[in-house]
Write a protein that binds this DNA or RNA. Sequence first.
DNA 1: ATTACTGCCC
Length: 934
Amino acid sequence: MSLQRLFSLKNPLQPHFKLLKPTIFTKSIQALAIITENPQTTTKLNLTHDVEWAAGSISYSKLLSQCCKTKSLNPGQEIHTHLIKLGLDNDLKCRNHLINLYSKCRVFGGARKLLDESTEPDLVSWSALISGYVLNGLGEEALLGFTEMHAMGIRCNEFTFPSVLKACAMKKDIVGGKQIHGVVVVTGFESDAFVANTLVVVYAKCGEFLDSRRLFDQIPERNIVSWNALFSCYTQGDLFEQAIGLFQDMIGSGLRPDEFSLSTIINACTGLRDINQGRKIHGYLIKHGYSSDPFSCNALVDMYSKVGDFEDAKAVFDHIQNPDIVSWNAVIAGCVLHEYNDTALELMLKMRRSRIKPNMFTFSSVLKACSGLGFQGLGQQFHSILIKSDIELDPFLCCGLIDIYSKCGEMEDATRVYNMMPEKELIALNALLCGYSHNNNDIEALSLFAEEHSDGLGFNETTLLSILNSAAGLQDVNVGEQIHGLSLRTGFESDPFVINSLIDCYAKCGSVEKARKVFDESSIADLATFTSLISAYAQSGQGEEAIQLYLKLQDLELKPDPFICSSLLNTSASLSAYEQGKQIHVHTLKFGLLSDTFTANSLVNMYARCGSIDDATRAFSEVPEKGIVSWSAMIGGFAQHGYGKEALALFNDMLKDGIAPNNVTLVSVLCACNHAGLVTQAKQYFESMEDVFGIKPTQEHYACMIDILGRAGKLHEAMDLVNNMPFEANASVWGALLGAARTHKNVDLGQTAAQKLMLLDPEKSGTHVLLANIYASAGLWENVADVRRLMKDSKVKKEPGMSWLEVKDRVYTFIVGDRSHSMTKEIYKKLEELMELVGKEGYVPVLEIDLHNVQRSEKEVLLSFHSEKLAVAFGLIATPTRAPIRVKKNLRVCIDCHTFLKFVSKVVTREIIVRDINRFHHFRDGSCSCGDYW
DNA sequence: ATTACTGCCC
C-alpha cells in the first residue's frame, strides 16, 4: 500500500500516525536497498525494520537516485514526505533528484513546484525538468522551460543541450534547432559527443539529410551512437538503402554493431522488404549473443510479420522470455496482417493474463481483427473500454471504430466518432467515406467529401476510389465526370486503382463508351483493368466486346483470374453463347479456377442458360463447395428448361443437405411448378414459405404464383391473390395477369391488367400488343384499332423480334424478314425446302390473330420470316449435321414458330433449343419439352 | 544530481 492511499483515508489524523508505522515504510526502502545492490545495507536492513535507522545509515540522495533509475515514483514520494518531516527537503541534491523523478514520471506539477520553491534553482534543476519533458514527448514544454531558464541567466551545459536539441528534433523545428546550434557553437560544446550526436539527429529528423551527414562527417571522435543515430534517422526517413549502406560503412570502419545498430538495421530490412538480409542479421544476432535483446526481437517479429512468414514471426515471439507491450503488439499486428484474426484476439487475452495492459496500438490491431471477423459487437465493447480508459483516441483508433460501426451499418455512430476527432485526418475521412459507400449512403459520402475538400483536408487515391463507388451507386455520370476531372488535375489519373474505379463507375452509370475511353487512354494493361472493362461490357450486355477484350488479354499473355472468368461465363450465359461459354470453361480448367466457388457457380449458370441442362448438371456435380447460389442456379436451370420434377427433387436434396433456401431459390421452385403445371404443389410451397423457410413472399413470388393460377385458368383465385397481397402489385404481377387473360381470352381482366401496366410501365410495348390480341380474339376490332392508335400516340414501338445463333466464334443476329445476312439466299432457300418437308408431315401455318387485317398469303410469308425460323435455317446450313441448334430469342416464341419447329426437329432429326424471354424449348422428334404450355 | 542512438496501429 502506498502512502498516497494512506492520505486518502477517512480520518485526517491517521496519516501521521500511520506514517510512523515502520512496517509500511521499510518495505519500500528495503526493496530499494536491495536494488541498489549494497550488500551491507541489505544485510543490515534484514536485521532491523527501523525507519530512523534507514534514514540515518544510507543517504537519501542515493535512494532517490535509485528511484530515478527505476522510475519508482511511490517510494520516491514516501522519501519526499519523510524528508519534509525531517526538515531535510531543502537539500539541493535531493531536490534535484526529486525534480528529475517527478518530471520523468510525468508528475510535472510536483517537479515544477519543487523548482519554483527552490531558493536557488540551478542548471541541474532545469536540466532535470527539461529532460523529463523530452522523455515524455513534450517538446514544446521543454523549449519553453529552456527559454525561461535562459531568461533567468542560467546557461546550458553539455547535459542540457542534448535535451533541448532533442525537443527541436521531436517538433521538427529546424529554425529553433539552428538557433540552438548557434548557441552550441558560441559556447563551445560543439565537440562534446552527446551534443554532436544530437545535432546530427536534429538535422536528419527535420529532413536535412545532407547537413546531417556533413555534421556527422565532422564529428572528431565518432562513436557507435553517432553511427546508430544517423542510420536510424535514415530508416525513419524511409532511406533504407542509405541506412544499410551506412551500416556497412560502419562495419568497414572496424566498429562492431551493438543491439541498437542491429534492431535499426532489421527495421531497414523490413522497409526494403529484404528478407534475406534480415535473416542474415538474425543469424548475426544469435551468433553474437544479442538474441535476447528485446528491441531486436521485437524488430524481428515485426520484420517476419510484414515481409516473411507469420510462423517465423511467431517463433521469434515465443522465444522472448518476458514479452513487453511492443512484443505483444507486434505479434498481434502480425496476426491481423495475415488475417489470423481469431489468433489476434486470443493473444490479446493471453497478454492481459500476463498483466500487460493493452495500449492504443493493441486496440488498433484488435479492432481490425474484430472487423475482419465480423465481430462488430466485440468492437463496440472495445470502444466502451477505450472510453473508460485513459488511452487517447488517436486517428488510427478512430479509423478502426469508424470501420466497425460502418460494418454493422451504424453510420450515425461512425459519423459521431469522426466528428469527435479534434483534427480531421484523411485516413479517417477515407474510412467514413468507405462506410457510407458500403451502406449506400452515396449522397452523404459525396457531400461529406465536398465539404471536407473545400475545407482543405485534401484527398488521395483511396478517397477517390470511395467517392467513385458512391458516384457509381448514384449512377450519376456527371458526378463521375467531375471526379474524373479532379483526378486528372491532381495526377491520380495514372493510378491503376483509380483507373479501374473510373471504368467501373462509368460502366455502372451506363456509359460504357466513357469506360472504354478511360481504358484506351490508360497505359496500364493489368488484369484488374481488363476485369473492370470486361465486366462493364458484360453488365451492359455487350458480350462480343467482352470476348474481344478477353482475346486481347490473352494476346498479352495475362493469366485470367476467377473474376474475369466468372464475368465472361455470365456474359456467355446472357448471350446464350454456348460455344463461347465452353471455351471459357476450357480456360477455367486450364488455369485451375474451378476451385473458386464463384466461377464454378457461374459455369452451372452458363450451361443452364445456354440450354444445356446436361452440361449444367455435370458442372453442378463438380462444384467444390455447393452453396445456396450453386443449388439455386441448378434448380433455376431445371425450372427454365421445363424439368419441373427434377427441379423439385433437387430442391429436396438441397434441404436434406441442410442448406436453407433463399428467396431466389423459392422463385425457382415456384417457376418449376409453373413450367411443369404443378398447381397444387406450387400452392403448398407458396403458402408454407414463411412458416417453413422463414421467407416472406416478394412481388416476384406473387407474380409467379399468379402466373401459375392464371395459366391453370383459375383467374378468380389469381385476382383474389392480387387483391390480398400485403403490398401494391407491381408490373410483373399485372403482367402475369395480362398473360392469363390472353390465354383464357378474358377481356375484363385483360383491360384491368393492361391499364395498370400502362401506368406502371408505360414504355413497355408488349402490353398494347397483348391487349390488342385479347380484343382481337373476342372479335372487338374497334378496340383493337383503339389500342393501335394509342400505341402510335404514346410512341411505344413494338420491339422487333430478334434471334441469335452462335456458330464457331461468332454470334449471328436475325431480325424479322432479315435479308442482310451474307448467306440470305441460302437461308431462304433452306426455309423453302423446310416448308415443303414439314408441309408433307402435316404442318399448317397457325396464324397470330392480331394479323387479321393482312391478306392470308402475306401472313404466311411474314410468318415464315420470323427471326427464329431464319436462325434455325441458317443453323441447319452452318453447323455440323448432328449438333443441336441453339437459338436465343428476345420475345416469346409465337405459336406458329413453335409448331413449325416441332415439325422441323422431326424431319431433320435434330434437337433445336430455343430460349425465349421466359424459358427454354427443347424441340426433339416432333415435340417440345414445354409440353405446348408456355 | 542533469545528456545522445532501437520497437508496435494507417
